[in-house]
């Protein structure tokens, strides 16, 4: 079963800068892109360093793909799929995210919370 959980107001997210959120015991990194207005949600845990830092990475693009770079050792991840662009073996979990009535909402399901 799936549920959308309200996290914060959209205005609380600075465009092109990440923010961490605590959702049901999960640490999630939220990004609001300035050009498309989209909000993306991925793991806050950096799979390379095992530290909760992804939301503090720099937002950018690589060949048109919206990315976030780990602030620890700079590996880039595709914000839409969570795939690491520097190591195909590694990826971040992605959560569906949407904006409703000026609120950012994340879809939490049983599968992801067990991850």
């Amino acid at each position: 079963m799936t549920a959308w959980e309200r996290v914060c107001e959209l205005d609380a997210l600075v465009p092109d800068r990440g923010a961490a959120a605590l959702i049901g015991g999960h640490q999630v990194a939220l990004f609001r892109l300035s050009d498309t207005g989209e909000v993306h949600a991925v793991d806050h845990l950096d799979p390379f360093s095992q530290a909760n830092v992804m939301a503090r990475g720099l937002v950018g693009s690589r060949k048109g793909v919206p990315t976030v770079a780990s602030p620890m050792h700079k590996q880039s991840f595709d914000l839409r799929t969570g795939k690491c662009l520097d190591d195909p073996e590694v990826s971040l979990q992605v959560w569906p995210a949407r904006v409703t009535d000026g609120w950012v909402e994340i879809q939490v399901d049983a599968r992801s919370s067990a991850a």
């Binding site: 600075v14 465009p15 092109d16 800068r17 300035s34 360093s49 530290a51 909760n52 830092v53 503090r56 990475g57 720099l58 937002v59 602030p71 620890m72």
Partner: peptide, 19 residues
Amino acid sequence: NATLQDTNDHVMANLQKDG
């Protein structure tokens, strides 16, 4: 300009291995 900075410059401190 704030969105241009590495986390170190952004929060004016030095990131360590555990975050």
